Amino acid sequence: TGEEYIAVGDFTAQQVGDLTFKKGEILLAIEKKPDGWWIAKDAKGNEGLVPRTYLEPYS
């Protein structure tokens, strides 16, 4: 299990392996990579890379 984050903006996948999401979606951070791209999972179970700058902790 990971930590929940809320998307603060829309993001469209730029390449294969990225995860597209919309502002307000809750994402589960699976792995926090030091380069600023995290592996996350959305509510539908889709998994991919997301930019850290689009996420804020969800409580």
Rank of each mutant, 00 (worst) to 15 (best):
T1P: 12
T1D: 13
G2F: 14
G2V: 12
G2N: 12
G2R: 13
E3I: 11
E3S: 10
E3Q: 12
E3W: 12
E3C: 12
Y5P: 00
Y5A: 00
I6R: 09
I6W: 06
I6G: 01
A7F: 02
A7S: 07
A7L: 02
A7M: 02
V8F: 04
G9S: 15
G9H: 15
D10V: 02
D10P: 05
D10N: 09
F11Q: 02
T12L: 10
T12Q: 11
Q14P: 05
Q14H: 09
Q15P: 03
Q15C: 13
V16L: 12
G17M: 05
L19C: 03
L19I: 04
L19W: 00
F21L: 05
K22H: 09
K23N: 05
G24K: 02
G24E: 02
G24D: 06
E25A: 11
E25R: 00
E25S: 08
E25V: 05
E25F: 04
I26M: 07
L27H: 00
L27V: 05
L28C: 10
L28W: 14
A29E: 02
A29L: 15
I30T: 05
K32Y: 08
K33C: 12
K33A: 09
K33E: 05
K33L: 12
P34G: 12
D35M: 04
D35Y: 06
D35P: 02
D35R: 03
G36T: 03
G36I: 04
G36F: 05
W37G: 04
I39G: 03
I39V: 13
I39M: 11
I39W: 13
A40F: 08
A40M: 15
A40C: 15
K41Q: 11
K41L: 10
D42G: 03
A43R: 12
K44M: 13
K44Y: 14
K44P: 03
G45Q: 04
G45V: 00
N46T: 08
G48K: 00
L49E: 05
L49N: 10
L49T: 13
L49V: 08
V50A: 07
V50Y: 01
V50I: 05
V50M: 01
V50L: 03
P51Q: 10
P51H: 15
R52D: 13
R52W: 14
R52G: 15
T53C: 14
T53W: 15
T53F: 11
T53N: 14
T53K: 14
Y54W: 09
Y54F: 13
Y54D: 05
L55S: 00
L55M: 06
L55R: 00
E56M: 13
E56V: 14
E56P: 02
P57Q: 08
P57L: 12
P57R: 09
Y58H: 10
S59F: 14
S59T: 13
S59V: 14
S59C: 11
